[in-house]
Design a protein around this nucleic acid. Structure first.
Lengths: 196, 196
DNA sequence: TGATTATTTTACTGATTGGTATCTTATGTA
DNA sequence: TACATAAGATACCAATCAGTAAAATAATCA
């Protein structure tokens, strides 16, 4: 019972995602959010808790909606195609014409004031999950004979994620989709051939 | 004539560099700066103008003091060694134990509020200068027969800078010097062999 | 209809932001 | 010593920050 909400929380969350992705966590003010969402401050706080809670919920939405391709990419038949799909799919996300360029997980907070350290750490932790998933995939590939036994999956996962992070910074700086795809072209040239 | 300054502006600038490098442009408040520098607000404004002016001066200092290795690296005999020195030297800067991890040019501002857009753009422009310098070096290498004629120097410069940016984000996230050197190891494996 | 409950609206809080006006103190020059 | 000048100290500015108290409104349930 009680009065009904006059806005769609899910729609509002999508808008928050756009704003946070463009301005980062600290660069976004509550006023930026309420203005874009078309709701008042108390409505925002009632629906989403506080700024930190809202940001974490946009992170969940972002991973669910934009980074979901990564899970499928990792299931590609070979490690090489998995990594290539990972990087090319990420480029598409970074330069999605419907969203601000760049990645919420990077734009969110690279450096910030002490007050937002917990957000920064959350982002670091979430990135590490992705890197570990990739490392696990490469370890499996090594067992399958699809990845050289004298190469370290952790080293390659770290490299691939680093290239991704670099492209994320560049996308936010205006580098085009085509240019980023050429970064992937070059990055993939180092990929090791399977052992014979 | 008049009263003498009781603080060393150069020393104060070095302290500002440390603070900005750790917290970024927007994550650093004037109070953070004056507290770390041990001076009062009016002294800061009298000596350095405003926050933006101060930040640009710390950028100049940073490039002069920490990124100066890049100029020498580019003068290495071959393109390959130039790039490797570039990347390894950058790793050393990113993980300098005397400074906060990461790069001022990246930590400074990846995403920010509208009020700081000009700073963000300044950082993008300065990064582009470095990339263009590297591209020019690779073009020279191609003329010298030190780089394949069927490879695009711009593509490779973009790739190398992307790897650097990715490592910068990772350094700020706590990735160790040793792990970043292994990223360089892998990144260099894609380097093209000189034409015969 | 009347009571209850949840939401919207309006106005506000204390803290912090970047930036300054003003007064005092210290210095070199006449 | 008197004056001019520049720096430090104190206290302040308006604007903005994240967050909320309280009243008004709209819905369901009895």
């Amino acid at each position: 019972m009680g009065r009904h909400r006059e806005f769609d929380p899910d729609e509002a969350l999508h808008i928050a995602l756009q704003v946070f992705r463009r301005r980062g966590y600290e660069g976004t003010s509550i006023s930026d959010l309420t203005e874009a969402m078309g709701i008042t401050r108390p409505s925002l706080y009632a629906a989403f808790g506080n700024k930190e809670d809202l940001f974490r919920r946009t992170l969940d939405l972002y991973e669910r909606q934009h980074l979901c391709f990564a899970h499928e990419a990792l299931q590609a038949p070979t490690a090489r195609t998995a990594v290539e799909r990972l990087l090319r799919g990420y480029v598409d996300v970074l330069t999605d014409p419907m969203s601000p360029p760049g990645c919420l997980g990077v734009n969110g907070a690279v450096a910030c004031s002490e007050a937002s350290e917990s957000i920064r750490e959350e982002l670091i932790a979430r990135r590490m999950v992705n890197e570990n998933n990739l490392r696990d995939r490469l370890e499996k590939a090594r067992s399958d004979g699809d990845f050289p036994s004298d190469e370290d999956p952790a080293d390659w996962a770290r490299y691939v994620v680093s290239v991704g992070l670099g492209m994320a910074v560049r996308a936010a700086s205006g580098t085009s989709r085509e240019e980023l795809q050429r970064v992937v072209d070059v990055a993939m040239r180092s990929w090791p051939t399977a052992p014979r």
